[in-house]
Amino acid sequence: MSTPMENSVDLLPEGPEIPHVTASRRHRREWVQTAKAAWALRRTKIGVGLFLVILAIALFGPLIAPYGPTEFVGKPYRMPSATAWLGTDNLGRDVLTRVLNGGRTVFSLSLTATAVGMAMGILLGMFAGYSRRSVDDFTMRALDIVMAFPHIVFVLLIVAALGPRPWLIALAVAIGHAPRVARVARGATLEIVGRDFILASEMLGTAKWRIMVTELFPNITSPMFVEFGLRLAYSIGTIAALSFLGFGLQPPAADWGLMINENRIGVAVQPYSVFVPVVMIALLTIAVSLIADGLARAIIGIDRRTGTE
């Protein structure tokens, strides 16, 4: 999906008022400013709060779970009782225990997929944006080939070829993200490459890769953090969807997406085994989106205050 942020990036308070400050130090101040402005918004606070609660459930859930994740505690599809607070699942395992155990994979896979996809996308996007026109065109056209597939179809194609393995799912989702991230990173790069401080570095004879690392990258981090949030929300959804389709985590693993698939036949008898994992995934994606939205608004706000166009 496209992002509304693609062309709203103009963050550098450039000008003569801050001479002799390296790009990274100048950036650090700007980044703190963005974070502070984002934190002032209520939606960011709600998002961060929700995120931390669900992260805590995922991290510490396995420690406080009353049973083992694959332990049979009763007959299948039993409604909540004193022994199983959220009832039992399709095989008679404790739903609460499996919910408490099912978050770690969701977090680890989606964070990995997003981080790897962002790294690939930023590298490709900066490279394209800071290259000669022909190299830029070629890179972006090549990325269009991956973009020719709807994200989930691309991932399914890789799964079909190599089989359903969790690390492969994360990598496939990452590769699907990369060209989309690259577009945003390229757009942000193009806005900066003509600036004086880049030209100055070039005239000093600084190597291109060094300019990319020390001058370009620090100046596109704010939009990239917003992009990271949007991509993370999308990764969580896609990875949960893949588990739901049966291509992610494999039984008997406890995973929120997989739980939904395993228990949906019994949803009329025992709704909690489906409803609770659905709510967990929903709250997590909402939390991440709220944070991303808060950051995006903060960046626009900063733009207004400094009066840059």
């Binding site: 939606r43 959804g237 896609t238 995934i281 929903a282 909402i286 989106s289 939205d293």
Partner: peptide, 13 residues
């Protein structure tokens, strides 16, 4: 904003 965050299978379920 909330709805746009939700994956489609979550909406369906």
């Amino acid at each position: 904003l909330t709805l746009s965050a939700l994956p489609e299978f979550v909406i369906g379920i």
